[in-house]
Amino acid sequence: MNMLAVILNSTIRSTTPILLAALGSAICSQVGVFNIALEGQILIGCFVSIVANYFTGNVYLAVLCGMLGGAAVASIVAILQVKYKAADMVIGTSVNLLTSGLTSVLLSTIFGVRGSFSSPELISLPKIKLPVISEIPVVSRLFEQLTFIDYLSYIIAILMFVYLYKTVSGFHTQSVGKNIEAADSLGIKTLRTQIIAVLVSGALCGLGGSVLSMGQVTLFTEDMSAGRGYMAMASASMGQAHPLFVIASSLFFGICQSAGVLLQNYVPSQLTQAIPYAATVIALSIFGWRAIRKKNA
């Protein structure tokens, strides 16, 4: 029983970055933008929040900076891909490679180290202790070591659902992805909507990145996003870009990651590390690849 709670707890913790990025991917596909630079947006979030953490010593400011960093990388996508209509795959892959190189270069420029950076001066995200639940024996294990971002990610998902499906402005946003000409003729500022969606996805990925580098561990390693951006895309497409379904599909990826960590005690770690990636391929095949790339439909 205790074991199960530990597994679920680790699932929740590894879900958060994927969920946040998947929501970013969902909002992009809702407005018909195929954003594959999520990977880079997460990575820059990891990096910038560690840098801000080191120099300001304020963990909340660091989270904010991580979000801004993600949005800054997203603005490259917004300008080149959305405004100037450059090929989405080309922009996405080169932005991902650019951030990968850039973070390594800046790591050595700013901290003078290569590979990874960690320091006792870094402050990790405070862990929230729930008032009543932390008294109950097994359930408390379930909720231990969680940061405010872990809770926030589900709130964001619900807010996004309310916005997209329950408000007029949300319907307008959706209409941009469904039929851009029609939306345009309705007087909706389609370009602006798309650009904002991309920037929001950048901020969400940046938030996911900051929990990745300051949540369970407090350090930055080269390429620490490790394909999570692409997993988030898979998760968003499995959840059909619907925020509430995306929660479910992201939890699946969280389970795969925590299963991988758990099995390390029994199976060589090289094989368990492959589990989340293989699971992504299998899950995508089972649930099918729906309309994340709507404009080609």
Partner: peptide, 21 residues
Amino acid sequence: MKFGSSIVICTLMLNYVANYI
């Protein structure tokens, strides 16, 4: 062909799988 899985995501994921195996 069978399931309509995304080529982009699957090819990328299989990079990690191949390297770890």
